[in-house]
Design a protein around this nucleic acid. Structure first.
Lengths: 361, 361
DNA sequence: CATAGTCACGAAACCGGTTGCACGATCCGT
DNA sequence: ACGGATCGTGCAACCGGTTTCGTGACTATG
């Protein structure tokens, strides 16, 4: 026996019980069900516990009760600012509600996602799974074993929070149309991404409605390089504006355009999505706010609420709206695009009928 | 009794033992000390376990052995790309070595840092504490209770990994001097940040050695806004180049300069630090590579190695070197700074001779 | 062929909590 | 004054593993 406990002087429930002259059960109850005891008893136990610096051992509690007091957050890529922001919101909320957070980075692979969900299962009371890359079947298997809230994937029967950017993308396409752009491009992300599919659809529909020519390009992994590499194709097809699946790709596009001597928004207009690095680029990106932090927070609330009560409202939609900054402007005059150097001082057209009034910066 | 276990059909060691016709002890040993058993027995148990889908319950193991199989990663701000990158490296390495990772975001406050270290202590075998904001005393208290590896703070007696950017900053100052800049600015970060202190010193020394005038500005929190806001002061003091405590601040400076119609590097040169968003700005930032992922990985290795063997090498220095990109160039001609529009195609001067060799501490 | 020494395995204690049940004390009604 | 609730607390089982110690079988030795 006597495997050494790592923290040797940490008092246990037995020590407190002995010191206070009560049983271990009473000490336990003083903390978990004080209403069952005499106030005087509770006070005495608490006093002794305080003096000894006793803190219940969470691992033992977890084993005994089956409640770990932990949740896990599984994301495809920590370094992607969208997920960083989401994690930040989620972790803070979990902490506020007394839960500690495990972190899993799946490196955008299904295998790791599956493995992590399996490995962490015992240690947590539930999962927040952001933008899963895995197929639906496996997700359902995991959801059956442990409470699980999904972010940005629409799975019937599983509690989920969805950031609806369709309205935002429609607004963006309308903005570009109002600005006189006739050919626009959409630079997309992974096929398996629900967000991407949703955005594609919104852009296609609105472009059709406004009679715009739309060119679709797909980036396998949504990265800066992917954006930069897409520029050539975008320009070749004659587009004068592009919408990107996220801000990172949009920033990549911006760099690629700058490399070719094109300036934004004078020569080309750009719209991102997420609003997470959008304010820090130059020029600041017009983008659809994905309310990442709120999504993370909501997912955690949903999960934790669902642990005590019955599973909560299943489909929670957060609507992201367009935030207009400086990367969008009037279409350049035809065939005068290159080396056109007027700072585009013209005001945005009055697009109010088709636009929200939210015009930051 | 019968507090309900959350995962009802998960087989336990007893079920496996019964099914295999052996005792629980034997099942346990089949996994932890197979050398003590007959190969045939091990094979049989393994087979049954496999069939039942048995996986040892990590919580029970933790309680019994005192080894949790978890580590915690405490950072001041998840959303800061430097820490994102670091976490990515750390988490991946922990996973590779069979450890799960807790995540703590301290929101740049000492209090949360202290609280998180306390709360998580039972659940983890050790901590990686990145860029602590807390005072040394408290850190030592925590280090005494649990193995702890610090990143970017030089605390005698505590295993630590330090990203030494002094050489890189010296190289950067020399580069600027060679380019003909006479007045340069350093835009710093939090006082409590070891990295910042170290960088200040390197810049001061090298600037003095090269006879440059140096202006120091401090940003309380290293953010984009802080960088942007610093531009006015920087310009007012006549600097033609600036070094920033990190890439985020540098990017903020870039935006502020652009707002004033100044272009980089033609009118002003800029150097960042970390090399984490540096390649994605436009123009790409000259920066000092802080090898974030490597730092995270090293810290985790140090920590885990230290759990079995005796505490490892204490002071581990990773040297970050200058990465020259496009944000640095020749100093503009005097009083001709504004609206100067030559793309500065000149090659960087050869900076090697004036570089210091190893300026540690 | 008796005895000591190995070896593989099982019984049971233990990690540090929680909780069902029993028991004794107090309180109440009649 | 007595019987039955009610209440506060302790006993002991339990969560699911690990590990010490002991035991019986088998082997080696004299």
């Amino acid at each position: 026996m006597a495997r050494r406990q790592a923290d040797p002087d940490r008092p246990t429930i037995s020590r407190v019980a002995a010191e206070a002259g009560v049983s271990r059960a009473t000490v336990s109850r003083s903390f978990t069900h004080p209403d069952l005891l005499l106030p005087a008893t509770v006070a005495k136990v608490r006093e002794v516990a305080e003096r000894l610096g006793y803190v219940p051992n969470q691992v033992a509690q977890a084993l005994s009760t089956g409640k770990a007091g932990n949740i896990a957050l599984i994301v495809p890529d920590i370094a992607n600012p969208f997920f960083s922001a989401l994690m930040r919101g989620a972790q803070a909320q979990a902490y506020r509600r007394g839960y500690a957070t495990f972190l899993g980075d799946t490196d955008e692979t299904e295998e790791l996602e599956d493995l992590l969900l399996g490995k962490l299962a015992v240690q947590v009371d539930g999962f927040v799974l952001a933008s899963p890359r895995q197929d639906e079947k496996r997700i359902r298997v995991h959801a059956a074993r442990r409470p699980l809230v999904v972010i940005n994937r629409d799975l019937e029967g599983i509690p989920r929070v969805l950031v609806d950017t369709t309205v935002g993308f429609a607004q963006a396409v309308n903005l570009l149309a109002d600005y006189g752009h006739r050919t626009i491009a959409y630079v997309g992300g992974p096929k398996s991404s629900w967000s991407n599919q949703q955005r594609v659809r919104a852009v296609e529909e609105t472009a059709a409605a406004r009679g715009l020519k739309l060119v679709r390009l797909d980036a396998v992994r949504p990265s800066h390089e992917a954006g930069r590499d897409a520029v050539e194709k975008v320009l070749r097809c004659g587009a004068t504006a592009a919408l990107a699946v996220d801000d990172v790709v949009a920033q990549g596009l911006m760099a690629g355009l700058a490399d070719r001597g094109l300036s934004v928004p004078a020569d080309f207009s750009l719209v991102g999505c997420d609003n997470v690095i959008a304010a820090t680029t130059y020029p600041p990106l017009t983008t659809i706010d994905a309310l990442c932090a709120e999504a993370g927070r909501t997912a955690v609330d949903l999960l934790i609420d669902g642990l005590s009560a019955e599973p909560p409202s299943e489909r929670n939609v957060i609507r992201g709206e367009l935030t207009i900054r400086a990367s969008t402007g009037p279409a350049p005059e035809r065939h005068a695009a290159k080396k056109h150097r007027s700072p585009a001082k013209s005001e945005p057209p009055d697009v109010s009928p088709s636009l929200p009034n939210r015009t930051e910066r």
